[in-house]
Amino acid sequence: MGKANDVQFERARPRIWDRLYPYLSILPALIIIALFTVYPFVYAVRISFFQNLLTKPRSHPFIGLQNYEEVISSYYFRSALTVTALYAIAVVLGVLIFGLGVAMLLNSNIRLANGLKIIILLPWAIPTVVAGLMWKWILNSDFGILSGILYSFGLISSYIPFLANPTLAKISLVMAHIWKEGPLAAIFFLAGLQLIPKELYEAAKIDGGGGWRLFRNITLPLLRPIILIVIVYETMTAILVFDLIYVMTGGGPADSTALLSWFAYAEIFKSLNLGHGVALAIIIALITLVLILIYLRLLKTEEINV
């Protein structure tokens, strides 16, 4: 579009261009995303209505909702649902408490706070598989460093098999999960804390509020939107967790750390039953969706009340 062009021509062209421009700018991204979302989703739903055993690659009879029925009535569904719920509750609470505590520490005026700010994001930045692997080793029952340290201080007489005991294995997983996900929550909460005007605290102090009362009456209510974001986000990561369990426990011992998402993997890659695995994955998606809708509902009513 050189300037020497005919004036009319120059005006007519930008107008069409202007009208098309927004569509052209979102289209590439939209196409890439749609291609890898809509089609796979439809495909997954279709698979879930057919019998699809990887051991019988040539026969895929239509069986309606039978995959869903079989998954729900399977030996593992109830226990896995309980384990998933327990895990999600523990992770969400753990991340909330860790995140809030760390954020307040980072926001305090101690000298170590600056050092902490440099390292706090490190666990968040690394692959989850690697984080799981590091913790698996630290907790190892034969040469793990955690047992090693406790042993050399004389706190224990023999190494603790953290990952071989059903209860300890769950606690270990939650601890590793908090290590990986907690820092992000801490940064979110810190951002929220820094927005709270200092005058609010000062005014409250004059009125004679103690530390706990300041926290309950000022900090918590003002952080409420961020708390809800963290709850939604962490519920999702907890329900969908896979990498961490894959490396740390493999669902064991005796399925004690096998969440629903683990069984979706096991159905596909261990039992080679694609139909079951995908049906379970869709059930998990629905559970997540329902939870998110409930949270969003809560978020809305909160906004009206405040």
Binding site: A44, I268, A281, I284
Partner: peptide
């Protein structure tokens, strides 16, 4: 639509992918 696409659990679409 773009935002909602992230709600899909990876395990459900891994096989179609």
């Amino acid at each position: 639509f773009i935002l909602a696409s992230r709600l899909m659990p990876a395990m459900a679409i891994a096989i179609p992918y």
